[in-house]
Design a protein around this nucleic acid. Structure first.
Lengths: 135, 135
DNA sequence: GCATACTTTTGTAATGATTTCAATAAACTA
DNA sequence: TAGTTTATTGAAATCATTACAAAAGTATGC
C-alpha cells in the first residue's frame, strides 16, 4: 500500500486512500481487470467505495500515463498497469485477457503518416485458451 | 445491389433485401461504420428496417467471415468489409477510423503459443488527425 | 486552531449501446 | 396450398458508462 502511494507519485498523481487501494490492486493482480472487477475486489474492505470513484480513478490513471486502457474486450474497458510495449490475447470463451510479451519490438513502432499524429498502438489477439472447456 | 447479393453468396450468406442493402452499404462506404450509422443511412430508403435487424445482420456477417468487427472504438462496435490484413487508426478528436495499409505482412502473423489457439489479430493506432480543428 | 477555497468521493439518476424476446412476415418444402 | 422453418420487427430489458450535485476531505492563509 505504501508502495502504491509512492508509485502514484511517480506519475504525479496525488495519492488518496481510494487511489492507493486501486493502484495496489492493479500492481498485485495482473489480470487486466474491468472496472467492476476492481470495484468488487475492493468493496469488501472499503464498504463506502463508490463505483464512480473507480471510474474517476482509472480515468485519471490513464490520463497520467500510469495505466493503459485496453479496447480488446468489446463488453468492458480493461486496464493494464504494465505500460511497456506488449500485446494482449483474449479468449472468446472465458473472456480472460493475457499478456503477449514475445513480440518483436518493431511491431510497436508508429507508422509514418502525412495525415495522422499517432501516439499509441494496441496489438490484440483473439482466440481460445487451449484449456477452456468449450474446446 | 446485385453485386452485394452475389457477394453474400460467396460467404454462404442467404441474401435478403435487408442483408443485401447492408452489404451494399458496407461495400460502398468504407468508413468502418457503427450499427447506428448503417441504420441511419439505410432507414430513409427502407422505412421499416429495424435496428435489431442491423444488429442481427452484422453478427451474421462476422460469423460467416464476410465482415470484421473492430474493437478500436470503445464506444461503439465498428465494422469493416475489408477482411485483408491491415491495421486501423482512430482519431481521438473526431472519432473517424481509417485504414492503415502500409504495415509489414509479418506483423499479422499469429504468435506461437502453448496455451492459446489464436485466430485473429487486430492492430490499432490511436492519435489525432492532423486536420482536426482541436489540434 | 479556524474560516475559506479547492479537491475528491459518493450516490443517484440519466444516457445509450446492445440484447432479449415474442409476434409477425417472408421464404421454403412437401 | 398447408405446414414448417427462417428472417424481420418493435418493444422492453439489461448493463456499462457518464453526468451531476451534495457531502466529505484536504490544504492554505490568517
Amino acid at each position: 500500500m505504501l508502495e502504491s502511494h509512492l508509485y502514484l507519485q511517480q506519475f504525479s498523481i496525488k495519492p488518496s486512500v481510494q487511489r492507493s487501494a486501486v493502484m495496489h490492486f492493479l500492481l498485485n493482480n495482473r489480470i487486466h481487470p474491468t472496472i467492476d472487477e476492481i470495484y468488487m475486489a475492493l468493496s469488501p474492505s472499503m464498504p463506502t467505495l463508490s463505483k464512480t470513484t473507480v471510474y474517476n480513478t482509472l480515468d485519471l490513471f490513464v490520463e497520467k500515463g500510469a495505466v493503459r486502457a485496453l479496447a480488446i474486450d468489446e463488453k468492458n474497458a480493461r486496464y493494464d498497469v504494465d505500460i511497456s510495449a506488449h500485446g494482449h490475447f483474449m479468449c472468446k470463451s472465458c473472456g480472460k485477457v493475457h499478456d503477449i510479451f514475445d513480440l518483436k519490438p518493431f511491431m510497436f513502432q508508429i507508422p509514418e503518416s502525412e495525415s495522422f499524429r499517432i501516439d499509441s498502438v494496441e496489438i490484440s489477439y483473439l482466440g481460445n485458451c487451449k484449456s477452456c472447456k468449450s474446446n
